[in-house]
Amino acid sequence: MSFATTKSTKLAVVLTPAILCQCGCRGIQSALDPAGPQSRSISGHWWLLFWVCTVVFVLVVGFMLYGLWRSKIQTPNDAPVDPAKETRTTWYVSACVVATVVILFVFLVASLSTAKTIFSKPGGKPLEIEVTGHQWWWEVRYPDPDSSKIVVTANEIHIPAGQPVHILLKSADVIHSFWVPKLQGKMDLIPMHSNSLWMQADFPGVYRGQCAEFCGHQHAHMSFLVIAEPLADFNQWRDQQIQSGPPPADPVLRKGQHVFLSSSCVLCHTLRGTTASATLAPDLTHFASRHTIAAGTLSNDRASLERWIVNSQGVKPGNKMPPNDLNPEDLQNLLSYLGSLK
């Protein structure tokens, strides 16, 4: 029972992680598929840890199996203890301990260096964003000294590609955790604490994030998207988000808005440009410009929206949005209106 491996075994050992990585590591939410400097630094650190630990593991288990194989031909236990052998063994064990200490020290230094990279302020002028965690959605705010330029949206964060972003993290209720694996490590949102993190996406793309601290019934459905765009597109998006919608011209849309304003919607949602300005639930001013509904649970299309409005508890049981009993015509008008809020 020897651990002497054949060529093909050795090849498999080397290639398997590489192959697995190709098919396994990619993903919209994968930490092994980094898209920004912070996550790339962590990923590099991970591969160092991975390879060194793999070698250590193979050596330890290998030695165990070797020891098992070798020991069967040893002297019987009645033979006296051989002092020379004991001394040799002491040397070997001590060498292993020293090697362990050295490896751990290397890991420590690597860890501190990577930590410095991910925590330190990157060069360039950062974009400031405030994210407040609620049960079970993300409030996103782009502050601005000019209050007419403040953008408030929900569950979707647009950032310019290639520019550092500073995200301030607050919580309105329980502890949540902001995590976009492809861009940065996670950071908790703790009530009455102000945490923050740095983030940057090198290239335009869509990156998915998810709450990573158990926060109640719908922790599993509390996701968000980070959409990195070229600077021009980002500015265009931002300018559009600042606008409040004009009163709708189309009669169907007007009826839809009337349904919104006279039902329970106004008790929780804001529609800038109307009298609806409650802040318990996501800001819906530019609802139709978002890709998902209900914090990444449903895609933003008419059928899903109808399902969400009529029976939100069936989609996300326990979430704070009550089901709504609207008559069919009102419902369709409302759907049309919400679909027009680009």
Binding site: I42, C53, V56, S111, A115, T117, G185, K186
Partner: peptide, 23 residues
């Protein structure tokens, strides 16, 4: 246990733990 201990050394590192924590 050795495999688990090695992943433990990995998550001892703050930057890696910020990806692995609570996953």
């Amino acid at each position: 246990f050795v495999l688990g201990g090695l992943t433990g050394v990995m998550v001892a590192s703050v930057p890696f733990d910020l990806q692995a924590h609570d996953t």
